[in-house]
Design a protein around this nucleic acid. Structure first.
Length: 281
DNA sequence: ATTGTGGCCTGCCCGC
DNA sequence: TGCGGGCAGGCCACAA
């Protein structure tokens, strides 16, 4: 499910849509349309448009139309949203399943049954575009926490985490006594860090998620910026946010893969957080 | 303004 | 087998 790494995969998948022309808009779930958008307005705005660029800003996917003359289509995936292009989900599913020994040993049928949210169930397709050239793109979201909007306000997002500089990170955390992790996950400060990536990169950086953001030394901020970029790039190349080195230990009773210390599970910034009390200070 | 909390919506998994 | 509770990778409105 979608953090930056997943949305980056969706972006790559969506590149195959470039050059296609919207034949029809399927927006049966009005609740899924945001900022006052209605099914009728979406149909009017998008039908006949050619898709000509796909960008990712943090966890937001932006599809541009008609060389800037048409509206931008903004897709958000919430916690359970997936992008399906021409009937294919993005390959992060495959990587994820292949990575699990137990999953691999099981039959495809069993896997399909147990991982119901991956099945091609059209009831969960909340929004779709069909193309004159054939094929379609669908936003499949069982929990309906994602959404679709036109011309999303990208200025509300901070610099993209994948390319965050030390200066970006310092700006994001300076002066704040909120937990470091909460600040990193504030999309207005830095865009794209989700709960799993936050745990992973703070674990790699050796920083306590609960530390007041402003307590970092200049050297720690630099180290943090490095690990933000490095971790996200790693997660993208490995195929998903669940591919981090800390992830296997993200369960009750697990120990730190670095030093064997029992991990601490708590809520930080309102989110379940795993960290190592020994090497994360 | 900043920070913390609750809620949104749905599905899955565990324990009884 | 059925049922209730707790959980989930995001985000927004709200209160202090």
């Amino acid at each position: 499910m979608p953090e930056l790494a997943e949305v980056e995969r969706y972006r790559q998948l969506a590149e195959t849509l470039i050059g296609r022309t919207v034949q029809s808009v399927v927006a049966r779930d009005a609740w899924f349309l945001k900022r006052g958008l209605t099914p009728r307005a979406a149909r009017t705005a998008l039908t006949g448009r050619r898709l000509d660029a796909v960008r990712r800003v943090g966890k937001l996917l932006v599809i541009e139309t008609d060389d800037g003359a048409g509206p931008n289509l903004g897709l958000r995936f919430g916690m359970s949203g997936r992008l399906v292009v021409d009937g294919r989900a993005s390959i992060d599913d495959l990587v994820y399943e292949a990575a699990s020994e137990s999953e691999r040993r099981r039959s495809r049928a069993e896997r399909e049954t147990s991982r119901a949210s991956n099945r091609p169930v059209t009831a969960w397709d909340r929004f779709a575009l069909r193309f004159e050239e054939g094929g379609d793109v669908r936003l499949r979201d069982p929990r309906r926490l994602g959404g679709v909007e036109l011309d999303p306000d990208e200025t509300a997002l901070g610099p993209d985490a994948l390319h965050a500089t030390t200066a970006d990170v310092r700006r994001a955390i300076e002066g704040s006594r909120a937990p470091l992790k909460a600040r990193l996950m504030d999309q207005r400060r830095v865009a794209g860090i989700g709960n799993l990536a936050a745990d992973e990169l703070l674990w790699r950086a050796g920083l306590d998620p609960a530390r007041p953001a402003r307590s970092l030394t200049p050297d720690e901020s630099r180290r943090l910026a490095h690990h933000i970029r490095r971790t996200l790039a790693d997660l993208i190349s490995r195929g998903g946010s669940h591919m981090g080195d800390l992830m296997p230990a993200r369960e009750a009773g697990a120990v730190c893969p670095k030093d064997g210390t029992p991990l601490v599970r708590r809520t930080v910034g309102g989110r379940t957080t795993f960290s190592c009390p020994t090497h994360q200070r």
